[in-house]
Design a protein around this nucleic acid. Sequence first.
DNA 1: ACATGATGTCATCATCTGTAGACATCGAGC
DNA 2: GCTCGATGTCTACAGATGATGACATCATGT
Lengths: 190, 190
Amino acid sequence: MSAVAAGRRRDAVRSRELLLQAATGLFAERGFDRTTVREIAERAGVDAALIARYYDGKAGLYIATLRAQAGDGSFRDLLQLDRLTELLDRLSRHGAGPILQAAVREHDDPAIREAARTDLHDRLVAPLQARFESEGLDRPELRAEVAVAAFAGVVFGRTSGAFPELADVSLDTVVALTRQVLEGAATAEV
Amino acid sequence: MSAVAAGRRRDAVRSRELLLQAATGLFAERGFDRTTVREIAERAGVDAALIARYYDGKAGLYIATLRAQAGDGSFRDLLQLDRLTELLDRLSRHGAGPILQAAVREHDDPAIREAARTDLHDRLVAPLQARFESEGLDRPELRAEVAVAAFAGVVFGRTSGAFPELADVSLDTVVALTRQVLEGAATAEV
DNA sequence: ACATGATGTCATCATCTGTAGACATCGAGC
DNA sequence: GCTCGATGTCTACAGATGATGACATCATGT
């Protein structure tokens, strides 16, 4: 019988997937540094040594979660209301995720730095930049970067415990506020 | 001869001060977790064991740096141009510092969490809140929190390495952009 | 059925980190 | 000059962490 078709008790593909999902959740909740390979393995119900085997270590697994997230959504820009709403909702609930974390903290591992930087740019900065360009604004990339940075600040602020009001407010309200903050990056005279 | 008046070879006050300064710099550059007591001691030119003796451990030293910064500046709000300029300048140069770091990441130690939260509120949120109140805006505290969170995002974005344009741009330009971002939090309809 | 590669498990290592305590040395007051 | 508290230095420990390799077990093709 084909191994792929049957529900195998030993299934490398499945183990990889379990690790990837567990890692995605934990990295989003606690960040890269504060997450241990043993925690990931425990949540995945898998032995920790498999991280080294299948992902060449913790850093490789982190990059894999980046790559996985990279394909999960559209590339619409943050100023489209549904996009902003969806992102704020998901990120407030499950944690900021590896891409936004790169906006706020530099990683030690150069491979991680580069992968995160690329993803952040492609998924969040570039779409906004394109919009600003099409609107004829000057310095579109700079404006897009500022907007994404401010967006990251709001997202982290919602989960950091430092802003009680911001943490408790309704999604719609945060969306309205954040939208106006992003507009600020577009309308500033530079 | 009085011990305090003379330049003593053994001087606890001086050792404490050296540790505090070294810790302030390192915590700002790398954050709490990534800074080790041995690094702090080395930069201070002092033995690491003195951290435990004089500050009751790493967490105590961190809180001491918070307290020290708490008294170093005025309590003007971020929308005063000179205040915004001064802060953006300093934080871009020396790193975000412990207070803003609390805006973005939750600390493990409850004592640290509480101290950082209080300082963040008193020094940044409350002044903005007062301004918004005096302008007759609704939800002044929420607006102030959003503004500070966005501000933190911009500051971290400048040093995270993820935003090349933002990192390189002149101080005046960042100030103009950030100011408009903060205004967004004030003008949004909620 | 058997050989072989794939997959999983386990024990262990090397390193780093914060902390504590023993010990040494200095300096002020008598 | 001596004593004793203050200050500094050194070693070591206990826990955590990422990584590694040896070994066991399963599944597949023949």
